[in-house]
């Protein structure tokens, strides 16, 4: 009886449970990150003071370690970090001394905008292409889409980025500026700067999405209700959009969401080519500086974005498919 009651209670508060699982997952992520980061050999103090080649006494090193809190026992460092996290305080960067939330906020804008632009490009290209390829299966349209798709998966985005730079230099004698202009300061300059990396990344992205759209559509187009729709003489457009696409959209939405989550923190290489100061570049810099607090904060951000996006995808499922409910 007690067990039954507990189960009922849990069923009544699924949202709370989801949140609890979410928090538990994030906590485990935090512990793992904390341990992982500290396994990286060499610490920031040695890296900054000693590698400069200057003469430093032990005392100076110890003092610097104490200032950064690196002399405390590991559990104490972890508790400190956790205590900050609860207040959404990720601590200060060991390298620059600025608050990490501030450092991330500066770059997040750029990474987010780039991710959104790439997604728009990818969706605009991939979904029509994927649908056309599925509907015209076995024709030259289908083969072209497939070839472009397979090639997109194989082309490194950073190489495409280099080729874009080469094309711009050769044909326009112009390079995107090195300093970032926010969208609201000068929209034209901003878009002119970010469209190139968005294109370089968007190609791979659209390749992934169009492949998924095509195979999901193919599966749905075989369904009985689509045959019925054809049989009763509905217009092709209605059948494809309302009957097929709506039902094929779930795996496509998943791919788009996961790829979007990846773009927020995973553009480590493409950002380097365009000299963009985004989250990915911050991550590479943090790793080479052994900036523990920064690596922790960034990994938590990346994992957090992924978990939140996954959660949003689950919510979208309910909207896309009324048969699904989590209540």
């Amino acid at each position: 009886m007690a067990r039954y009651l507990i189960r009922r209670l849990l069923l009544m508060i699924p949202t709370l449970l989801t949140v609890a699982v979410l928090i538990l997952t994030l906590l485990t992520v935090a512990v793992l990150i904390f341990v992982l980061v500290r396994v990286i050999p060499g610490d920031i103090v040695e890296l900054r003071l000693v590698s400069g080649g200057s003469f430093v006494t032990r005392g100076v090193i110890e003092a610097e370690r104490a200032r950064l809190g690196l002399n405390k026992p590991l559990w104490q460092q972890f508790v400190d970090w956790m205590a900050g996290l609860v207040r959404f305080d990720l601590g200060t960067s060991m390298w620059t001394g600025a608050p990490i939330t501030h450092e991330i906020a500066l770059r997040f804008q750029l990474s987010l905008q780039l991710a959104i632009m790439s997604t728009l490009i990818a969706v605009a290209i991939a979904i029509p292409l994927g649908i056309t390829a599925a509907v015209r299966r076995g024709t030259w349209v289908d083969y072209t889409v497939q070839i472009v798709g397979v090639a997109g998966l194989a082309t490194p985005s950073f190489w495409l980025a280099i080729l874009l730079l080469l094309a711009l230099l050769t044909y326009a004698h112009w390079l995107p500026p090195l300093t970032f202009t926010p969208l609201w300061v000068d929209p034209r300059a901003n878009l002119l700067q970010l469209i190139w990396p968005a294109l370089a990344v968007g190609y791979r992205y659209s390749a992934v999405t169009s492949r998924m759209t095509r195979s999901a559509m193919l599966e749905v187009l075989r369904e009985d209700y689509v045959r019925t729709a054809w049989a009763k003489g509905l217009a092709q457009r209605v059948i494809i959009v309302r009957h097929a696409l709506r039902n094929a959209l779930m795996p496509v939405v998943t791919v788009i969401g996961l790829e979007f989550a990846f773009l927020i923190g995973g553009l480590v290489v493409t950002e380097q080519v365009f000299n963009l100061n985004g989250i990915g570049k911050l991550f590479v810099d943090a790793i080479s500086h052994r900036d523990y607090t920064m690596i922790q904060g960034l990994m938590l951000l990346v994992a957090g974005v992924y978990i939140v996006v996954n959660f949003l995808i689950d919510l979208l499922y309910v909207w896309l498919d009324p048969r699904i409910s989590y209540g």
Binding site: T25, L36, G266, F283, V284, I287, M299, V302, A303, N310
Partner: peptide, 14 residues
């Protein structure tokens, strides 16, 4: 599940 929540390149970098 947790390891999958990091992009492969981030994991490999770390």
């Amino acid at each position: 599940d947790i390891m999958i929540s990091f992009p492969i390149i981030i994991l490999a970098l770390a």
